[in-house]
């Protein structure tokens, strides 16, 4: 008897906790379909008549097509660059552990703790003529992911048998061929994990564009939403619709890749 009561209590607590975690997303979904008047208090009630046109309105007024394209470009390009470069670095640093290489490894992963100096970075961006350019943002995002990616991939490279490398070297394989044809495919699980984490992180970020992109045509989704909120904060139905369109890709990627994501987070953190 005591056991069943305890079980019911546990389920109730878990349900309440999940409910609290889900309510904000629920609010966004229902309010995105309401009229302006209905959504004024951002309540939990369902809309009387679903206002599907809200989405068309925000896509047009919020310039979401451009913003979506920008976010996609930044996230995909920076992730590809960041993961590839990090994989190359993690691989040689992990395989050839000279004292110098170990130092370089620790030097790079110090970047996980390092805060960005946005002010002097402006000056660097001016020097290399990348300020207010899309390429500049991509490069910055790629650079920002490198310490964590190197950390994650380095640990994974250790688990791959060296015999494979040796066999390939004896067969006369060049370092490039060895890496791209033999090692790279074996790294797939960790590359997917790092890639998903990078994609979500970049999609959600908005500090770098806030500092370094002053043209609204270059803005990603996050900055577009923030700006849209500034203009339409009296109309929560439109803000909700805008927000929902921004988080929809994130939620879809999360649900599809959650196994990689959860295992990757854990591999990175628990392994230490």
């Amino acid at each position: 008897m005591r056991r069943t009561l305890q079980g019911i209590f546990n389920h109730a607590v878990a349900m309440i906790a999940s409910l609290i975690m889900f309510i904000p997303v629920y609010l966004v979904i229902v309010n995105s379909l309401k009229t302006k008047a209905e959504a004024s208090s951002m309540g939990v009630e369902l809309p009387a008549v679903p206002q599907w046109q809200n989405f068309a309105i925000v896509i047009e007024r919020g310039k979401l097509v451009t913003a979506f394209g920008n976010s996609l470009l930044y996230a995909v390009a920076a992730t590809a660059i960041g993961v590839t470069l990090a994989a190359l670095a993690a691989y040689v640093l992990s395989r050839n552990r000279t004292p110098f290489n170990r130092f370089i490894y620790f030097f790079i992963i110090m970047g996980i703790a390092m805060p960005t100096n946005f002010v002097t970075l402006t000056r660097v961006m001016q020097w290399v003529h990348l300020i207010n350019t899309q390429f500049g943002i991509i490069v910055l995002y790629a650079a920002a992911q490198i310490p964590f990616n190197v950390f994650l991939i380095y640990a994974f490279v250790e688990t791959l048998p060296r015999e494979l490398d040796e066999a390939a070297i004896i067969d006369g394989c060049s370092p490039f061929r060895l890496f791209f044809y033999v090692v790279f495919p074996l790294l797939t699980p960790v590359l997917v994990t790092a890639g998903v984490l990078n994609l979500l992180g970049i999609w959600n970020e908005f500090l770098l564009p806030l500092y370094y992109l002053n043209r609204s045509t270059y803005w990603p989704m996050t900055l577009a939403v923030y700006n849209f909120f500034g203009q339409y904060q009296a109309d929560w139905s439109l803000v909700s619709a805008d927000v929902l369109l921004t988080i929809l890709p994130v939620i879809v990627i999360y649900l599809l890749a959650q196994r990689f994501l959860l295992s990757g987070m854990v591999a990175g953190a628990v392994k230490g």
């Binding site: 190359l88 691989y91 790079i108 970047g111 790629a142 650079a143 920002a144 310490p147």
Partner: peptide, 14 residues
């Protein structure tokens, strides 16, 4: 091989 990662990190963070 580590040059690309190291270079970006040095230029934009360090």
């Amino acid at each position: 091989f580590a040059g690309g990662a190291l270079g970006l990190y040095l230029l934009f963070y360090v």
